[in-house]
Amino acid sequence: MVISKENASAIKKAQAAGIKFVVSTGRGYTEVKPLVKEAGFNCPMITLNGAQVFDEAGKLITSAPLHDQLTSKIIHFLKKQKLYFEIVASKGIYSDNKAKRIENFAELLTRVSPDTPYKLAVIMASARLELMNINYIEDYNELVEDKHTSIFKIVTFSNEGHKVLDPIRKELEQFKSIIVTSSSSSNIEINHVNAQKGAALQAYADNLNVPLDNVMAIGDNNNDLSMLRIAGVSYAMGNAITEVKQVAKRLTSSNTENGVGHAIDEVLKEE
């Protein structure tokens, strides 16, 4: 996964015009930073759906981890449902099943690039995971008990999508102090209620004394809704889910057609 030259060019053009560009993602800092560096620019980052916010120098500004007791309850609940899930913590991504990890990454690759055969995606996923900092662990409760580890996000998966995950999501939403979102139809992402892209974006804008009317947000999935709702200028990607397209004020092209770059260029021309 890379940031296209067209998108990177538009981002750099915005930065040259004095606009603060911020990456806002469900991924962790160590996953995203190499992509940004390779694209040739630097910026603050809202990561893990808002659970961690970093400045341009990579210094942690704010964090919103899940509490230990709550995390234990979620782990117990997901295990009871016999669902595979992963944990994103202060020391990286944790999985208790390597085969499932590869399967899920391969499924992601086929969604991003539909022309990729699944068998090839599995090979690519296996090779990619060897380069990523994935930690394999037998019992997730070891993380909860480690006082030197903070847990920021739990992600559970099902290739059956909404059929399996929607009922699970409804039950999870009964838990106090969490927010349940998703970044695809095949996952559920669980964060502390204070870890939301919208809240993180608003706090960052407030710190710069920038009114939300002058804030632009671009998104394509459920975990983007909170920031799209507060931004004065909001774009849905062409490949966005229906709810995102309903909430956003504008529409750009898809993620495979440099939609981010097109949206930025469109707004720059209006200035």
Rank of each mutant, 00 (worst) to 15 (best):
V112M: 15
S113E: 15
P114V: 09
D115N: 14
P117H: 02
Y118C: 14
K119H: 14
A121D: 00
I123V: 10
M124C: 00
S126W: 10
S126Y: 11
A127Q: 11
A127F: 10
R128G: 09
L129R: 03
E130I: 08
E130F: 13
L131Q: 05
L131M: 09
I134A: 14
N135M: 13
N135Y: 08
N135G: 12
N135V: 15
N135C: 08
Y136Q: 03
Y136V: 04
Y136I: 04
I137C: 12
E138Q: 13
D139F: 11
Y140E: 06
E142K: 14
V144W: 03
E145M: 09
H148W: 04
H148V: 06
T149H: 08
T149L: 07
I151G: 04
F152H: 03
K153W: 11
K153V: 12
V155W: 05
T156S: 11
S158W: 03
N159A: 14
N159T: 07
E160F: 03
H162L: 10
V164D: 08
P167I: 03
P167T: 06
I168H: 04
K170A: 15
E171A: 01
L172D: 00
Q174D: 12
F175K: 05
F175L: 14
K176Y: 13
S177P: 01
I178S: 02
I178E: 08
I178M: 12
I178A: 09
V180E: 06
V180K: 05
V180M: 08
T181G: 05
T181S: 05
S182V: 11
S184A: 02
S184Y: 02
